[in-house]
Design a protein around this nucleic acid. Structure first.
Lengths: 304, 304
DNA sequence: CAATTTAGTTGACTCAGTCAAATAAAACTT
DNA sequence: AAGTTTTATTTGACTGAGTCAACTAAATTG
């Protein structure tokens, strides 16, 4: 992966560390440390959490947390009782006083944030929040990853197909720019001669980002050409490829084609497995060096 | 300002605090604390900083920093000498050993980041980095907008050109997919017939993200065709378009072309201004409806 | 030139956070 | 069902990161 990206991320991290440092000044004239505040926040917003959940969630040392809770108990901020379902665990409940403190901390922290955001225009605020969402959805594995949706192509998508396939296959199989040239040629001809009645391009998209593609072009003679099947690294293993191919076949059948044909290379194992499963049969094979490496080109067909 | 925004920001902050916590584990089996690492990083990347700059930049206590520097000096990582211009201040210089440590920390931290980013697809990585840039540019008034670099195209870039132009012009001018078809056609022919001696494609990139493009194709007869000039919204106003065009002209001149010619549409005001400034003259104009809207197509030429 | 500010150092301290060991309940194993 | 392992929590014993106040010395201000 490109160093420039890592460098950009590190740079952002340095910046955001400083920014968080500024925000955390909110607790300065408060009897709470940053950790105290985090704990109190978690208790206040999930009343009745277990202590072990807190250590996991906030990545705290159990001993340390135990002491913090003891102090909170002493200050009358929380009450703890054994979990009836598990006598080892305890359930933490905020007292009225605890809730009051929780709200107070919330107010302070909000004020601190508002101070920074008030200077921004509304659409800037939205841009920032949107960007935060973007980062989170990609970096947080526990973030509910929304399912992929499959839709017709939109402007830019054809370019994306060329780009992503060229990048991926250059990286994974060492193919050279002639592959991109071929993909671009296929893509541009598809767009130039696009016949909505007999042709289609499907894009799989997740969180607003393209992750897969496939298209059907009219090969004449009742033959539908299946082309440019691609599933991005980030979305493999979800059965997306299979879904895309099935969608294609259904489309081809409904438009009265008698056969679906496709050309691929045997290094693309995952794709081949999908074709086999869908009922395609290998009709011809030839060695070539079109993309700078020795490959086995294969033609597969499926009779409808 | 809306509570929802503040809530979203706090939510992101909680998430990112945890994320940074994970990344900072990079220093776990290192004799350095997080603060040590930050100091060493600052020294390593700005050799010759003053101590007071460090306290300001990293928001550290002067006493604390003094002790850290003392320790670093003892370990032979840095050398300090009085600032000749200000006898109170000191200049901090990393020793060879210090630089080695600095590089080691950099490697660890990069590896930690790469671990998280490797699972993402290339365009996801770009989405995240772009989002980071967005956040930073809005929240950091002093954000130095890192310079764009201009380089030759790499696999995937041609696809990117088609994608980004199609998206942008669809959004901004309401052009339909015929524009993408045209761009894809130009791009694919460029790649298919690429002649390294007389043709070239420049990509402007910032922080690992493509932000601009231009290419020169051989039009025959001593005429260089300038094509697919594009500067992304996020990078406009930096003079990037001008730089790209100048680069093209220089190239065309050096390869012995007698003329540079290009076709554009008059709605693309920014581009037209660049061409005018570069000395191009309008030679013909025609109304057309190639992209679903009434436009004025224009041909411009520059004699070399 | 006296007064004030800035840069850096040192002593003294504290308290946030860690590690190891102990207890007790729950969850496996056989 | 008895034995073993794992999980939840607590406590004792530390340590060392970070703070505060006081001090020196050079630079700046008025």
């Amino acid at each position: 992966m490109p160093d420039a990206i890592i460098e950009a991320v590190r740079d952002f991290n340095r910046f955001y560390t400083r920014f968080l440092g500024l925000l955390n000044k909110a607790y300065l004239d408060t009897p709470f440390t940053l950790t105290d505040a985090r704990v109190l926040f978690e208790i206040g917003s999930h009343d009745g959490v277990g202590a072990s959940t807190l250590t996991r969630e906030l990545q705290l040392d159990a001993a340390y947390l135990s002491r913090i809770l003891k102090r909170f108990r002493g200050d009358g901020l929380i009450e703890t009782k054994r979990d009836p379902d598990d006598q080892r665990s305890q359930v933490i409940l905020a007292t009225e006083k605890g809730f009051a403190q929780f709200r107070e901390l919330g107010t302070r922290s909000s004020a601190q944030i508002a101070e920074h955001f008030d200077q921004l225009a509304t659409n800037e605020q939205q841009a920032v929040v949107g960007a935060m969402q973007t980062i989170r959805s990609h970096l947080d594995p526990t973030a509910p990853s929304s399912p992929a949706i499959i839709r017709a192509h939109r402007p830019g998508d054809i370019g994306w197909i060329v780009q992503s396939q060229a990048r991926a296959y250059t990286e994974e199989y060492g193919w050279d720019s002639r592959f991109e040239a071929l993909a671009a040629d296929v893509a541009s001809k598809f767009l130039a001669n696009f016949d909505p009645a007999l042709e289609y391009c499907w894009i799989a998209e997740r969180n607003g980002i393209n992750v897969g593609s496939i298209l059907i072009a009219n090969g004449g003679d009742g033959v539908a050409k299946l082309r440019l099947l691609y599933v991005d690294k980030s979305a493999r293993g979800l059965g997306l490829g299979k879904t895309l191919v099935e969608e294609c076949i259904r489309f081809a059948r409904s438009r009265g084609y008698r056969q679906v044909s496709l050309w691929t290379n045997d290094v693309l194992h995952a794709a081949r497995a999908i074709y086999v499963k869908a009922g395609f049969r290998l009709v011809s094979e030839e060695r070539h060096r079109m993309f700078g490496r020795d490959e086995n080109g294969q033609t597969w067909v499926l009779d409808l």
